[in-house]
Design a protein around this nucleic acid. Structure first.
Length: 958
RNA sequence: GUGGGUGUGCCGUAGUGGUCAAUCGGGAUGGACUCAAAAUCCAUUAGCUUAGUGCUUACGCAGGUUCGAGUCCUGCCACCCACACCA
């Protein structure tokens, strides 16, 4: 029959609900517990396939742990803080077609869509719908524990305020300046999602160099390479261009318009005075760091919009600068035009400042030669080698004797990588330079305004760069389990690499910083320890059911419940929450915490998961630090990235409605494991349906049927079932859900097939029952509805969801029994091979010749000897000293061949007696397979017996 | 660029240094069943092949360690992820 997966899932979901199977109660604080968490989904839309894949891990694990006898809490929350919802609502208000289409695709009607121009409506709509989807998937969820984030949720808001007060108390929240990508029209930071162009571009840090003219004005240049400061030979300005003269921080600067404006946004006082022509500066001299003067030369290659519109030239280590210099030195016309003495210009030579291995002390020259570049018009090549040289200088070059003096320490011989920052700091301190930010590429806001870099003052940071904090974070990581373990290195790296994090913003939804109400806590910072809140959310989200109110929750409350500080009496006095409730929540928290498991896709390693570690170590004592993280890859569909533009974007709901919960649960779990990207194979839906239907029919027809006597092959099958229990259990424990399916569904079915073939469809009743019960239980975490349906069929009552996880009977596992089955399978395929060679389609008789007696002894001895030496001569010598000497001729041929290829040896110990017994037992099957008589022959002198070896019979097909 | 991960047959995947020409699923081909199809079952699916149950190449590329390498080491190449105020 064909199962209607939709019907059975409705049936069982209703039954679970009615019997409160997944309601979480803590009635025994001694009972072992397992608390699973996963980052709550963002409520800017319905859950999609990626969510399904990520959530299947904790979902499956939760069911597994329940069956193992744990009290399990698996929580869901709905994330609504931050800017995306606000941004999306704004788009709806503007009637942006893409956004409207996205909502329509989620099944929202035209009239309904307009309501989504209010952010609040998203928060009302999507959590409700998401919960519906989660339940329809049969996920283990106790909805009393679910909640939404944002300040709209008062108790949650109070919790986040408490969290930030704690961080501030510890000195981890500090104020500072911070460069951000900024839209001048919106007057707000422009995140990736709010850009119409320039996703991924960031503020890049430059150093502005000040070059003093004799009249007291400064020419300003920008550089990424302050390390070459000692090598400046001249400045370049475009004589035909207009520059801007501006008063910056009380000094007169000459630069381009862009930079002047940017400086203003970056916290400098800037008053633009007038336009000046580049021409008037050509030939003048400026003062340089290190007590030198250099000349200003004309150049037309300058990009006026980039940097400051003029540059200082370091021909020793910049190919662009060098080639420009060479060109000018040949160009009498230009020199004359700007009143320059060409002989003076010709005297300008690169000043060696760096030693670059393989390129000498004038690296730029070596590079130009290497790539045979003749003119500054070869832009493409020049761009390429500029990057290459930059890399080489940065990582391999060392500074020369020019850096001995002049700096706060002797930098001679130091690598550029190490010295760069010291040089920058010294230059800044000495008033020669200052930091400046420019975008790494063009960024355009959604409002079509071009973005700039803005220095935000009074920005609040979390000091993830704090050394001591990093140390404890590492301590926490070291104590955690990471699945898969290979990603630990990545975590180690990230904890070190993270620096201060701007944790609050001026826009978006969320909790306000308790000490500075102008700022909203940013959404990656407010979700780092909410798993603690979630242990008691059942009470805080539904206080009326427990007869109290949460209007006056305060820090005292959370201090007591989460940190065991203060007294219940005082908390009752200040919050009005009855002592009994306070104590219950405290006990619940202490019971559930820490969380045992948290998983996410790998893109959250560098932010959310790392923050989670940091924040826990800052706030909680060691015993409440996270226990484990599991990281999964991203989901691909039929080996393509899921994306709306490709049209292969699927919400969980639409897949569910089409195929049913169990089918997509199985397909998702089977998509992959480990941190590699997983592949959701749409074609597997049908395979899954077919296999489950088959399984159901088998259960129905075979339970409680069969013979009662016990044969050798029954023992083999019993061994396989128990082996499968062990392997599947380990797979679940290691978060290898795909492997678990492989073992418990596919492999087990294969073994069953072989078993039925071997018993000629006369299985042992006890074993068939063991198989069926075991398999249903092993699969229940992945496809629970289907398994309940099967369970009902055989048991009639109870839930398989509540059944005890099977335990492997170690005594029944007998790997040696595999040998006989392997021999049989090999014999069958060898016979086929022989038939093919002999071109026999239908054999009349098959004779199997067992190897001569002495070969068994020989093989045994050979296996011993080979452990000692691989030298054929030595092995032969030893063998020849024994009674095997009489077979010397055969042995001398066998030994080298066997050393080369040990696959010809039987894997396990095998006696002639055993082999004959196994052959006699299985010859009936061979006879049936080939439709002819089969005879086992013991005749060592027969020609065919000569080629036989233990475990490998001689075959004669007639 | 930096850090991390991964590269296996037509496709997707498994793979503790020796039973690996390689697991499992799919696909393809041939056969059985059928009036036919689907489903199911069986076989084949690197190349060669003489009753030799054999041989030769193969696990991104190139080297190395080892008696022995898909598995260990080194170097290349390719792909994926992250790189910040964005969830």
């Amino acid at each position: 029959m064909t199962i209607n997966f939709k019907d059975i899932e409705k049936k069982w979901q209703a039954a679970w609900e009615k019997n409160k199977v997944f309601q979480v109660e803590v009635d025994d604080y001694q009972k072992k517990k397992f608390y699973l968490t996963t980052p709550y989904p963002y409520m800017s839309g319905l859950l999609h396939l990626g969510h399904l894949f990520t959530y299947m891990a904790p979902e499956t694990l939760a069911r597994f742990k329940r069956m193992q006898g744990h009290n399990v809490l698996f929580k869901y929350g709905f994330h609504c803080t931050g800017t995306p919802i606000v941004a999306a609502a704004k788009k709806v208000a503007e009637k942006e077609p893409k956004q409207i289409a996205a909502l329509e695709k989620m099944g929202i009607s035209k009239e309904e869509i307009l309501k989504f121009s209010e952010p609040e409506h998203w928060i009302q709509y999507f959590p409700k719908e998401t919960l519906r989807d989660i339940k329809s998937m049969g996920f283990v969820v106790d909805e009393r524990y679910t909640f939404i984030t944002t300040s709209l949720n008062k108790p949650y808001d109070a919790f986040i305020k408490w969290q930030f007060n704690k961080l501030k108390e510890k000195g981890y929240a500090k104020k500072g300046k911070h460069p951000v990508v900024w839209c001048p029209k919106d007057n707000a930071p422009t995140g990736d999602h709010a850009r119409s162009e320039g996703e991924g571009e960031t503020p890049q840090e430059y150093l502005l160099f000040k070059h003093k003219l004799e009249d007291g004005r400064y020419l300003i240049t920008a550089t990424l390479r302050p390390d070459t400061v000692m090598g400046t030979t001249n400045l370049y300005m475009n004589p035909e261009a207009k520059y801007t003269e501006a008063e910056v921080n009380g000094e007169k600067w000459v630069l381009n318009d862009n930079c002047a404006k940017n400086l203003k946004e970056q916290g400098h006082e800037v008053n633009i005075i007038e336009k000046v022509s580049g021409k008037e500066f050509i030939g003048k001299k400026v003062e340089e760091f290190g007590n030198r003067k250099v000349i200003i030369l004309p150049a037309t290659f300058l990009d006026l919009d980039f940097g400051t519109g003029l540059v200082h030239s370091v021909p020793s280590d910049s190919t662009d600068d060098l080639i420009a210099l060479r060109d000018l030195q040949k160009d009498e016309t230009t020199c004359e035009k700007y009143g320059l003495d060409i002989n003076e210009i010709k005297k300008i030579q690169p000043i060696p400042v760096l030693n670059t291995p393989g390129l000498g002390n004038i690296a730029a020259e070596a590079m130009l030669k290497k790539y045979n570049i003749k003119s500054q018009n070869e832009r493409e090549k020049l761009e390429k080698i500029k990057k290459e040289l930059y890399k080489l200088s940065h990582f391999t070059a060392t500074l020369n004797e020019k850096y001995k003096e002049n700096f706060s320490e002797n930098l001679e011989g130091k690598r550029v990588e190490e010295a760069k920052e010291i040089i920058s700091n010294d230059l800044i301190k000495g008033g020669w330079a200052l930091k400046y930010y420019e975008l790494s590429g063009k960024v355009v806001c959604r409002c079509l305004t071009e973005c700039i870099v803005k220095m935000v003052e009074n920005q609040w940071f979390l000091e993830y760069n704090d050394k001591k904090w990093k140390e404890v974070a590492h301590e926490c990581l070291d104590s955690m389990k990471i699945y898969p373990e290979v990603l630990r290195k990545q975590f180690d790296y990230v904890l070190d690499w993270l620096h201060r994090w701007a944790c609050a913003r001026e826009l978006g939804l969320g909790t306000r910083l308790p000490w500075d109400e102008n700022w909203v806590i940013e959404s990656l910072s407010d979700s780092t320890i909410q798993m603690a809140y979630n242990t008691i959310s059942k009470y805080l989200e539904h206080p009326e059911e427990y007869g109290f109110s949460v209007d006056q929750l305060n820090d005292e409350f959370f201090d007591y419940v989460h940190l065991n500080k203060g007294t219940a009496e005082k908390v009752e006095a200040s919050t009005g929450v009855p002592i009994k409730m306070i104590e219950t929540m405290k006990k619940d928290f202490e019971y559930w915490y820490p969380f045992d498991f948290r998983n996410s896709a790998k893109d959250l390693i560098q932010n959310h998961l790392a923050f989670c570690i940091f924040n826990h170590t800052a706030i909680f004592p060691k015993e409440h630090w996270p226990k484990s993280f599991m990281i999964n890859g991203r989901i691909m569909i039929n080996n393509e990235k899921m994306s709306k533009s490709k049209g292969n974007f699927f919400t969980m709901r639409e897949l569910h409605d089409k195929h049913g919960a169990d089918i997509i649960r199985l397909t998702a779990s089977n998509a992959g494991e480990g941190s590699d990207d997983a592949n959701y194979d749409m074609g597997f839906h049908d395979i899954a349906k077919r296999k489950l239907n088959e399984l159901y029919d088998f259960v129905k027809e075979n339970y409680n049927k069969g013979r009662t006597d016990k044969l050798l092959i029954d023992q083999w099958f019993e061994s396989k079932i128990n082996e499968t229990i062990g392997k599947t259990t380990i797979a679940f424990e290691n978060m290898q859900f795909k492997s678990a399916i492989q073992f418990s569904l596919l492999d087990l079915q294969r073994h069953l097939k072989w078993y039925l073939k071997r018993t000629k469809d006369q299985p042992n009743k006890e074993l068939i029952n063991l198989l069926i019960e075991t398999q249903i239980k092993l699969l229940a975490p992945v496809i629970p509805h289907f398994c309940e349906e099967c369970w009902e069929l055989i048991k009639g009552k109870e839930f398989v969801s509540n059944a005890a996880w099977p335990e492997a009977n170690q005594e029944a596992i007998k790997p040696e029994l595999d040998l006989g089955e392997e021999l049989l399978k090999n014999n069958i395929s060898d016979i086929r091979e022989v038939m093919k060679l002999a071109k026999i389609d239908q054999p009349k008789a098959i004779k199997l010749f067992v190897a001569a007696d002495w070969k068994y002894g020989f093989v045994e001895k050979f296996k011993e000897l080979i452990k000692e030496t691989r030298n054929p001569g030595e092995i032969l010598k030893t063998l020849m000293q024994s009674e095997l000497k009489q077979h010397g001729k055969d042995i001398s041929k066998l030994v080298p061949a066997l050393i080369k290829d040990q696959s010809k040896l039987p894997a396990k110990e095998l006696t002639k007696k055993n082999e004959i017994a196994a052959l006699e037992e299985s010859k009936g099957l061979i006879a049936e397979e080939f439709g002819c008589s089969v005879e086992v022959v013991i005749d060592s002198d027969h020609n065919k017996a000569k080629s036989a070896m233990p475990g490998k019979v001689g075959i004669l097909v007639e």
